[in-house]
Design a protein around this nucleic acid. Sequence first.
DNA 1: GTGTAATCAGAGCAATTACTCGGGTTACTC
DNA 2: GAGTAACCCGAGTAATTGCTCTGATTACAC
Lengths: 211, 211
Amino acid sequence: MAGSAEAFDFAPKKVATQRRSRETVNALVEACTRLLPELGFAGTTTNHIAERAGVGIASLYEYFPGKDAIVAQVAERLVQRVLSRLAEGSPSVLAAPASDAFRLWIELIYVTVERERDLVAVFSHQVPYTNRLEPIRTIGRTLLEFSQELRRHAGGRVREDLSNATLHLVINLVTSTILQLVHNPPADVTHRELLDELTRRVEQWMRAEGS
Amino acid sequence: MAGSAEAFDFAPKKVATQRRSRETVNALVEACTRLLPELGFAGTTTNHIAERAGVGIASLYEYFPGKDAIVAQVAERLVQRVLSRLAEGSPSVLAAPASDAFRLWIELIYVTVERERDLVAVFSHQVPYTNRLEPIRTIGRTLLEFSQELRRHAGGRVREDLSNATLHLVINLVTSTILQLVHNPPADVTHRELLDELTRRVEQWMRAEGS
DNA sequence: GTGTAATCAGAGCAATTACTCGGGTTACTC
DNA sequence: GAGTAACCCGAGTAATTGCTCTGATTACAC
């Protein structure tokens, strides 16, 4: 019944206040996080999640209206992890000389995605409502802001006349190439070749002329 | 049980020889084609498909081992439609003057994808084994070959020193941008803006200098 | 026309699913 | 320590799923 134009319920049912219950909720979300790559989205059932979490099935329904709400929580945490790792790595990118900045930027994203490989695969190829999830929608906007910030704070190493359309294209190119590389690497081109070429092209678009 | 590292059975069970049975198989595949966008991948059950096709459920299992095999057939036909429409439109692209060729090329792909919008959405965001399907894998290769052909037959309008890596990037950029535009259009950039910018950037990469 | 293989039908079974119910346990409050 | 609210449990239910079984109908060979 998981139709295409269906209404999903992503909101948690009840907020856990005491420590014990917070641990329960946490165990549930973590169990789901580990189960999704193992069994796939369809194979991950609420009963599975509760069992893996070492928690009664009724406790699950005490805090979540259903599977979708837990999956939404998993997505939110995933996005948080990814964004915080990007934020962690970005200072060293911004501090690097212009000749390395773009390569480091791309490599940072690559490593970050690679680290969440399996979970990312589930959300991008299995979950039917991935881009209706607020945290996921945010990540696009955040990447855009991040690149705008990078443009502002780059100290003249990045062109300043880049339109939003161009930034969208760059982000699209980088993310889609990295996702392809991680989930479905082409046979006729090596890993490094593609990343290098990607770096070169992004530089060509974004790098200020005389830097 | 539809796990992540699961084995799927895509091969049809029995080939239909007589006319009546070929019509049955056809009705099943078409029913599935219409059902997938309506109910989503998970919501489309074998019973649904048989019912919609006006066929007994047993007839379905006479020719297919399960849902996956029918879905695989749907994918194959989808790919065929897409490729044949691209092939249909490509002569006029190749015949066009250099100033229009790339724009027409991109618009051709855009229109073609748009026309299969909902079905494409199902395969790219819901079916867990989309890129294990041979026809789908082929479409990437075919697009690559198509662009190589375009490069050869373009009469000097396209650079000839493009590496495979570059072609991969171009195809990646074009397809991912178009998919985003069709399924998840950004709010801060108009449709046309993005397509125009895409055209310009592709030209910049592929177009021979003095053409 | 008759025999044989192909084709079709749908009732129904076994397994699985999401989810509830009643009742117990633990933790805070006074 | 009594009372109350928060928390937890798992057997059990209703609905759904994929799929098979038996047997009927249709097409083709001769």
